[in-house]
Amino acid sequence: MKILLALDPSTRTMDEAIKFAAEKQASLTALFVLDTTWNDYTGHDWLSGSGSRADFLEYARDDELASEVDVLATFRGRCPPDCEIRSATGRVTDEILNELARGDYDLLVMSQPFRRGLEIVRDTAGMILKGATCSVYLVREDEVRCSSRSGIESSLGVPAS
């Protein structure tokens, strides 16, 4: 069995994926996607001049890189040594779906809501469920204010397909 963990800052999701992989003796791959869609998100803004947007996009990218370092360090501190860690850049949902298609996974584990880059303003789980080729295990993130935003309120421990 092959499990893909889509990484975000949630330690609860990391622990669930690690526990589940251990129980099923499955191989676990963790994927961190560095969000590069800030450009599109601010695409409607035409008033910015000179270096404003370039400065901001660099600032957002630095924030993304710092987040990558943080999340990966947290995950490395918890996962067994045989876990594989991958990184990708692009639109988060696209990259997760690409990895699913490439890796022939049996299960995707991710947080709901998913807090990675601009996914905080998007329905990540909804998009993933539309395109996923395997079962999806959504781990509820309780502390986040936007949990009611998504139509998918999967309960903990029940894989949705």
């Binding site: 590069t36 800030w38 450009n39 001049g49 270096g51 370039a54 660099e58 990218r61 890189l65 990184s87």
Partner: peptide, 16 residues
């Protein structure tokens, strides 16, 4: 781990 590309490409032009 792949090195992330610099995402400063904003328009068809290099900068504002």
């Amino acid at each position: 781990m792949s090195e992330p590309k610099k995402n400063t490409k904003m328009t068809v032009f290099k900068t504002d």
